[in-house]
C-alpha cells in the first residue's frame, strides 16, 4: 500500500486553532477519534510525586512532567497515577503518562526516611527529608532540569529543595516545580520549605519541632494554588501542603498528614512525626484535533 502524506489532511506543524476534543483520565483503550484523523496533538501530564515521611521531617513531592506534541493515534494510552504518600519512607514517584509518542514522566516522591525516589522525562525533583532530595529530569524536548539546592535550582523540571535549619529549602522553579525540603531542627520555630512555583507545582516540606512548627506551603501553580501547611505548637503539627495541579488546587496539610497534590500532577505535601505524606495529583491527557 502506498502512503502519500499530501493526502493526510491533518498535516501541519502547528496546533493553532485546534480544539480540545478529549480529556483522558484513566489508562486503557483509545476510543472516540473520528475516522480520518490520523494525527492528534496531545498534552500529557505525569502524576505528581507523593510526599515523604519520617519520624521527624520530610520533603514534598515533585510535580509531574508536562509534554506536548503531535503523535499518531495509538490503540491504548497510559495515564500516570499520583505517587503514594510515604509512611516512614520516601513518597512514591508519580506514574508516567504516555499517548503515542508524547511522554511525560511522573514527579519524584519527596524524601523521608529514605531518599527521594527517581523520576523521568520532565518530572520534577522531590525535597529532602532526613534522606536526600532529588534533581529534576530532562524534558521531552530535551530542556535541562534543575538540581537540588536551597532553594532547588531552576529548570524545565525544578530540583528538590534540601533540608535546612529554621526553614527548609524551597523547591526549584520550573514548568514542573520541585518539592520543598524539610526544616531540620527539632526545637524552636521551624518552617518547612515551600514547593516551587510553576505551571504545575511541587508539594511543601514539613517541620517537626517542640516549638512552633509550620509545614511548607504547596507551590503556586499558574492555574491553581497550593495548599497551606499545618501550623501549631508541638510535633503534632507541621505537615506540608500539596502543590497546585493543572486541574485543581493542592490540599492543605492537616496536623502531621501531608496535603494531597492538586489533580493534574501537583506534588504531595510532606508528613512529619511519623504521619503519612500526601498523595500526588493524578496525571491527565488532553487531545486536540
Amino acid at each position: 500500500m502506498s502512503v502519500n502524506i499530501y493526502q493526510n489532511s491533518s498535516f501541519s506543524d502547528t496546533p493553532f486553532g485546534l480544539k480540545l476534543q478529549q480529556t483522558i483520565t484513566s489508562s486503557g483503550s483509545v476510543t472516540g477519534i473520528p475516522a480520518g484523523i490520523q494525527r492528534v496533538y496531545a498534552v500529557c501530564i505525569g502524576g505528581g510525586g507523593g510526599g515523604g515521611s519520617s519520624t521527624t521531617y520530610a520533603g514534598g513531592g515533585g510535580a509531574g512532567g508536562f509534554s506536548t506534541g503531535w503523535t499518531f493515534v495509538p490503540g491504548t494510552c497510559t495515564v500516570g497515577a499520583g505517587g503514594t504518600g510515604g509512611s516512614l519512607s520516601a513518597g512514591g514517584a508519580g506514574g508516567d503518562t504516555v499517548f503515542g509518542m508524547v511522554l511525560a514522566g511522573g514527579g519524584a516522591g519527596g524524601g523521608g526516611t529514605t531518599a527521594s525516589t527517581a523520576t523521568r522525562m520532565g518530572g520534577a525533583g522531590g525535597g529532602a527529608g532526613t534522606a536526600a532530595a532529588s534533581a529534576g529530569t530532562t524534558s521531552y524536548t530535551g530542556a535541562p532540569a534543575g538540581t537540588t539546592g536551597n532553594p532547588g535550582n531552576v529548570g524545565y523540571a525544578g530540583g528538590g529543595g534540601t533540608a535546612a535549619a529554621t526553614t527548609g529549602g524551597a523547591g526549584g522553579i520550573g514548568i514542573s516545580s520541585g518539592g520543598g525540603g524539610g526544616a531540620s531542627t527539632v526545637t524552636g520555630t521551624q518552617t518547612g520549605g515551600a514547593g516551587g512555583k510553576g505551571l504545575i507545582a511541587g508539594g511543601g516540606g514539613s517541620a517537626n519541632t517542640t516549638g512552633t512548627g509550620t509545614g511548607g506551603a504547596g507551590g503556586t501553580g499558574d492555574l491553581f494554588a497550593g495548599g497551606t501547611g499545618s501550623t501549631g505548637t508541638g510535633i503534632l503539627f507541621g505537615a506540608g501542603g500539596g502543590g497546585g495541579g493543572y486541574i485543581a488546587a493542592g490540599s492543605n496539610g492537616s496536623a502531621n498528614t501531608g496535603g494531597a497534590g492538586g489533580n493534574g500532577g501537583g506534588g504531595g505535601g510532606a508528613a512529619n512525626n511519623s504521619g503519612t505524606g500526601g498523595v500526588g495529583g493524578a496525571g491527565v491527557i488532553y487531545l486536540y484535533y
Binding site: 489532511s9 491533518s10 501541519s12 506543524d13 493553532f16 486553532g17
Partner: peptide
C-alpha cells in the same frame, strides 16, 4: 475537513 485553516490545511 474539520481542521482546514488556510495554508496549513
Amino acid at each position: 475537513n474539520p481542521i482546514r485553516r488556510g495554508e496549513s490545511g
